[in-house]
Design a protein around this nucleic acid. Structure first.
Lengths: 208, 208
DNA sequence: CTGCAAAACTGAACCAGTTCAACTTTTTTC
DNA sequence: GAAAAAAGTTGAACTGGTTCAGTTTTGCAG
């Protein structure tokens, strides 16, 4: 059975994330002071740092949730992709993009990305890269499956193309988070164009 | 003729960049205190902030220099590319990568990237994106030229492929700066593989 | 139940980037 | 060339994330 200590720890952990989540949505990440988060979670500042190494670690908790859900949804697409290479890849891309603002704002994404680049040796950064890695693998998996289904040419290096596609969709996503005025539709349109160019070249004519 | 004020301003600007450059190389970007930079430039902290809005703006000065030189070298490649699509694109990529550590360390790159993502509305960020944009355009220009020379298939959307290639080389470069143990050769090898996969599919057989 | 060790909590102090009101220097005006 | 205006300089104070020495709480052995 879990002791008092364990239970309290879990409760506080949840309370802090809850408080942070609320304050982030309310006033943005930057504007949310640690002091305010601690207060809202009924905890001292010192205790906050007992649970999280950095303010940014709060984001990681949210980003992880986000990406894990996206990976799960993505599995569905890979398992039963549309019967056309262009449609299939776009479906996966759209799954990623559409989910991206459920828990996070653009500002929060920017902060998470920036932190993961700036401090690569933190647990945060390692985990973030790991999640990216998994997304990349999923794109590769889809391409491999399309190839097996005869929708991509036999000679295509699906790993290389999958990774390239991921880097592309990731790069465009960064542009999107960095451009306050850019809507989700513009992001999708941009990526769909890349996918169109790609599948026109490496796809077979089966689904054209 | 330039007044005393103008001359002093230019002199101080140079002195600060000079001091910062030295200290950054010596102990790294993070470790270089504004106070120390100001002191080395024989200027007060307040004056420093009269010349640069943020500490990171010092990086921009260096990054700009860096990228401008790279763009210049890249022009050479685009103007007279090797007679094979794979070789040509790799040559451009290598030009970019080889130059990347002349003025900047990995840590400095990370800081610059992180800042440009984190604070998109600063002059720093805008300029950084502009430089990225120019690099991207250069890749597109090369691809277009290769297509005109019959080294890429006629139907290929060189803009889409060029931009995708840039996003790819950029993404791998980020991985490189974030992985302290990764050597330049590993970075190049990774990108060359992508280019190989790409040119195998969209290249003509002329230079095979 | 008592005492002790380990774990967790606390908030005042720390640190480094940034700001700003007072001061100095340069330029302009007459 | 004196006086006012404009521009630039200064460092002490501010800000907000992070640390840490001292205190409290919990778990456990006797």
């Amino acid at each position: 059975m879990a002791g008092l200590r364990e239970r309290q720890k879990a409760k506080r952990h949840r309370a802090i994330i809850q408080a942070a989540s609320t304050l982030f949505k309310q006033n943005g990440y930057e504007a949310a002071r640690i002091e305010a988060i601690a207060e809202a979670a009924e905890v001292s500042v010192g205790t906050f740092y007992n649970y999280f190494e950095h303010k940014a670690d709060l984001l990681l908790a949210i980003v992880s949730m986000e990406v894990e859900e996206v990976l799960h949804q993505g599995e569905g697409v890979v398992a039963a992709p549309p019967g056309d290479a262009y449609e299939a890849i776009c479906a996966l891309v759209a799954t990623y993009y559409d989910h991206s603002l459920v828990y996070l704002t653009k500002e929060m994404w920017r902060t998470a990305m920036a932190f993961s680049i700036q401090s690569p040796d933190t647990p945060f950064s390692r985990r973030y890269r790991e999640l990216d890695q998994q997304l990349s693998e999923q794109v590769v998996a889809l391409m491999t499956r399309l190839q097996q289904g005869g929708l991509l040419r036999a000679g295509v290096d699906t790993r290389a193309f999958g990774e390239l596609t991921f880097l592309g969709l990731n790069g465009l996503f960064t542009t999107y988070t960095v451009t306050e005025g850019m809507a989700l539709d513009a992001l999708k349109a941009g990526m769909f164009r890349q996918v169109r160019a790609l599948t026109t070249q490496i796809g077979t004519s089966e689904g054209a």
